[in-house]
Amino acid sequence: MDFYSLLIQLLNAVQYGLLLFLVASGLTLIFGIMGIINLAHGSFYMIGAYLAFSLASLTGSLLWAVLLGTVLAVALGLFLEWALFSRFYRREHLEQVLLTYGLILVFEELRSLILGNDVHGVAVPAALSASIPLTDTLSYPVYRLFMSGVCLVLAGGLYLLIQRTRVGMMIRAGSSNREMVQSLGLNINLVYRLVFALGVALAALAGMIAAPASSVYPGMGTQVLIICFVVVVIGGIGSVWGALLAALLIGLVDTFGKVFLPSISGLLVYLLMAVILLWRPEGLVKRT
């Protein structure tokens, strides 16, 4: 394999890993802080992709679709947390799994009723539709670089939010001692609501920016959900930075697995999980 092919695969791997991170970061935050196992998290990715598709057709602009879609995703997150999830924090994991599995069915059915079961495509915006020529035959699409850039900016923003702001301190404190946060006069319920909405928005954003690069299809949420759980488990449950590491690792293993070991590429990610769990049962990054 020559240098440029390798470079292309590497860029693809990083882009896939960063996209996974966007979805998984919300999943790990919601699990780590509120203790909720959210099977419906993949649905938010699917909802994001379908929002991009329908809003882009309505407004004629992906940018507007993403902006509007993000607002709608935040609203959906706030509503779901208020109406359903806030009642399940102290419940058994089994009850949470039943609730969130039920939500998957509801979201898929709504999607089917409103938008049908067809596979759709979303056009890449004209400004980002070019390709960068690498050799006579190889080129790399600008949109994929743009996706990675957006993911990096969002990851950076998430880092600043969690590490540098008072809300971030409350998020981290809430994951270690909920009662104490309240005893300091801080509204932990509001923190939970914001974290949940943030998680929903990140997953939906991932779906929105991925829509033009892949297609928009039924069941896309479930597919991403499973791999995101692998990310969360490898990274260490509740650790955002673990999720980033794990997502990039999975991006590399999956992408290069398809190139070098195509016959078993579907297995490699799970093999990786097994090996890492044998080596570090609590995942790559253990929370202090």
């Binding site: 981290r172 404190a173 994951s175 001692n177 104490m180 005893s183 300091l184 006069g185 801080l186 202090t288």
Partner: peptide, 22 residues
């Protein structure tokens, strides 16, 4: 509880309750 705390009551619980990850 957070509203009660806001009325000027601070609590140092048994076993301390610092946030170890901060």
């Amino acid at each position: 509880p957070w509203r009660i705390a806001r009325r000027g009551i601070a609590y140092v619980p048994e076993g301390r309750g610092i946030f170890p990850n901060l």
